[in-house]
Computed example of a mutant assay.
Amino acid sequence: MRRLRIVTHSAAAFATVVLLLSAGTRAQGPPRRIVSVNLCTDQLLMLLVEPSRIAAVSHLARDPSLSALAEEARKIAIVHANAEEVLRADPDLVLAGPWTTRATGDLLRRLGRRVAIVPLAQDLDGVRAAVREVARLTGAEARGEEIVAAFDRRRAEIEKKRPSSPRTAVVYHVAGLASGTGTLADAVLRAAGLRNAAEAERLDAKGALALERLLADPPDLVVLGHAEDEYRTVQADNLRHPALRRLLERVESVHIPQRLMICASPKVLDAVELLVDKRRALP
């Protein structure tokens, strides 16, 4: 009996050592089961890492109105930003944004999961930094540098065809929201050679622009962040207002899908290029 106990204890000790060694090996190599719980880290992750290493992305990644990579996300499992669902995916790395529920991140850390908060950029230079940060976290540095180099080349090509004379524009959303200074949409306007008319209204990221103000002093270009039929709620009534429709009959406008400006990924250059082409066509 004593010999049996010794053998049993030895086997248990050996199993513990094996588990510790495998855990150390897993931690030292690049993560193999990555979960993202933020729309913007979803897209950076899918651009950088092969699907076989992505355990799940957030449910928003499949929403074509919000995600620039919705089609790609349909091939990957999804989770909501709660610890129970994330743990079921058994991640060795969880990517989250600054606004991810703090309690979820804290609980996952207490349970031994690695959680990385990725700062979300608000300008084009920040896109490069965000790509490199997610590349570092996921062990995809080489791929990250390829993406940054392609981003820089495309950005330079777009700048070459950008008109030099400034024109004004405003990005107008549901509920009368307009993108003020310091926002990604503001950076997109500036990259396209447009001056953000919302700056005069001293709006920030959550600022609202009264329709009356827009009608009284319209910019050269109205950039619609949403199509009027995209939301069937009262929140989008401002986009269906007869006065706005009449304004758009005499002022140039363009619809830039929200999915191109909501996250600071390389896809943001699609929005810049659309605006540059529209800017060049302004009378």
Results as ranks from 00 to 15, higher is better:
T104S: 09
R62V: 15
L282D: 07
L189V: 11
A187W: 10
I158L: 03
R2N: 07
L95Q: 01
P31Y: 08
A271Q: 09
D125Q: 09
R162W: 11
R109E: 14
D277F: 07
A140G: 06
S253C: 06
L282Y: 05
T41K: 04
A191L: 09
D204I: 05
N238F: 10
T8H: 09
R132S: 12
E252R: 13
R213W: 00
N196G: 09
A68F: 08
L214F: 00
L275R: 04
S36L: 07
D63N: 15
V79N: 06
E157R: 15
N238Q: 10
V37D: 03
E228R: 15
V251C: 01
L108W: 03
R153Q: 15
A55Y: 01
A208V: 15
F151C: 07
L184S: 03
R213Q: 13
E228S: 14
D229K: 11
L47Q: 11
V171A: 03
N38F: 07
A15N: 07
P98F: 09
R240V: 06
R88N: 08
D204V: 05
R240H: 02
A55F: 01
E230F: 06
P64M: 07
R88H: 08
L224W: 09
V35P: 01
R110F: 03
G112S: 02
Q258V: 13
D42Q: 00
E157G: 09
L19S: 05
L47K: 06
P166Y: 06
R232P: 05
N238R: 11
V222Y: 02
D270K: 10
V127N: 06
R3W: 14
A83G: 07
V118H: 08
A205P: 05
L19K: 02
H80T: 13
R246H: 11
A121V: 10
D63C: 08
A178I: 12
P266N: 09
E201I: 04
N82S: 13
A227R: 15
R26M: 12
L211A: 11
E199S: 12
H9C: 15
H255G: 01
L19F: 06
A191F: 05
G180S: 13
T168N: 08
D270I: 11
E71V: 14
V254W: 03
V18Y: 03
L221N: 01
P31K: 09
R154Y: 12
E145C: 07
E199Q: 11
R202N: 14
R128N: 00
V268Q: 03
E230A: 15
A103L: 06
L111K: 05
A210K: 13
A142K: 14
A116W: 01
G182N: 04
A135G: 09
S165H: 12
A140V: 10
R136W: 02
D90P: 03
L282A: 10
E249Y: 02
V222M: 02
G97F: 10
D217F: 09
L239Y: 04
V268L: 07
A12W: 00
A70Q: 08
L275G: 00
P283Q: 08
A149S: 14
D42A: 02
H9R: 14
G126W: 07
R279C: 04
V17D: 01
H173P: 00
P283L: 08
C40T: 01
